[in-house]
Amino acid sequence: MNITATLLAQIAAFVALIWFVNKVLWGPVSQLLEDRRKRIADGLAAAEKGQHELRHAEERAKEVLREAKDRAAEIVAQAERRGAEIVEEAKANARQEAERILAAAQAEIDQAAHRAKEELRAQVAQLAVAGAERILKREIDPKAHQDLLQDLVAQL
């Protein structure tokens, strides 16, 4: 075996090479791998979080939608009730109005009839006087027979 000073030189070269490999190759690349591992882990965590948030948002959206539906149904029901009320109210008003108009017409009719009756009475009294004048062929003093005429009118 020929062990020579080459051995010492080789040892020195080997030690230097280890140092350089650590500095130039191992250090940067393992750092890079570590960084990438971390970035991927972060990305996965972010994706997980995003998914979680999405699920949460979906749930919330569903809830909001349900609330909105409930509220809409309530409003529709209220509106229907109010509509029915308005119709009822209008019906009542109309009925009242009709009754009022009917009553007014009735009153007018009554009044007119009354007036006609009064007129008729007056005319009858005149007629009676005129008739009596003809029968008696003489003038009757309406004043003298006031009582009689009054009595006649009252009987009509």
């Binding site: 075996m1 020929n2 062990i3 020579t4 080459t6 051995l7 010492l8 030189a9 080789q10 040892i11 070269a13 080997f14």
Partner: peptide, 8 residues
Amino acid sequence: DLNATLAM
């Protein structure tokens, strides 16, 4: 060369 292997 044994020198190289022995050095390591």
